[in-house]
């Protein structure tokens, strides 16, 4: 994968030389042309096309954005409600993720999604303790986190 990115950057620099225009815009243009060339010759390469991984990352970011905006509408609702009668609680969520990077990513995602912030880890860092601003149904909340985010993160790092 790093090899392909290197080829891509070299094509972009070559494009800049050919254009005789050393600006960011022409670099970007050359990079896009490099991607097109890589798509054409992808069958001759030994590795997977690296943009597949980039696409998974873009999907993760998209999911993240949607969740962030939903989270904020949620906070607005809770804050501006005339009577403060939400029922907060701390819930333990077990993850199946392996590496430290994946787990810290999951914790960051949990913090920026509706009604939950990650508070603490257990010693083996397999359990994330999540503070939720409103817990109507504990099991449903745990399942929701495990279904949506773990899958998206696994797609990126696997």
């Amino acid at each position: 994968m790093p090899f392909q990115i290197l080829i891509n950057v070299m094509l972009a620099v070559l494009w800049m030389f050919l254009q005789n225009e050393y600006t960011f815009v022409s670099f970007l243009f050359g990079y896009i042309i490099g991607i097109l060339i890589l798509i054409v010759i992808r069958r001759f390469l030994k590795f997977d096309f690296y943009l597949k991984k980039v696409w998974a990352i873009i999907k993760l970011i998209y999911l993240f954005m949607i969740e962030l905006i939903k989270a904020n509408i949620d906070v607005v609702k809770v804050v501006l409600k005339p009577k403060q009668d939400h029922k907060p609680g701390i819930v333990a969520v077990r993850t199946h993720l392996e590496s430290d990077f994946e787990i810290s990513m999951l914790a960051a995602l949990i913090t920026l999604t509706p009604g939950t912030i990650s508070m603490d880890f257990s010693d083996d860092s397999k359990t994330i303790y999540v503070h939720s601003i409103d817990v109507p149904d504990k099991e449903a909340m745990i399942k929701d986190i495990q279904d949506s985010f773990e899958k998206a993160i696994m797609e990126v790092t696997k």
């Binding site: 989270a71 906070v75 607005v76 939400h86 907060p88 508070m119 503070h131």
Partner: peptide, 16 residues
């Protein structure tokens, strides 16, 4: 200002 404990306030400050 309005929410009741530190943990709920962290929701407001961390996200919004």
């Amino acid at each position: 200002v309005r929410l009741k404990d530190v943990y709920s306030r962290a929701h407001a400050s961390g996200k919004s």
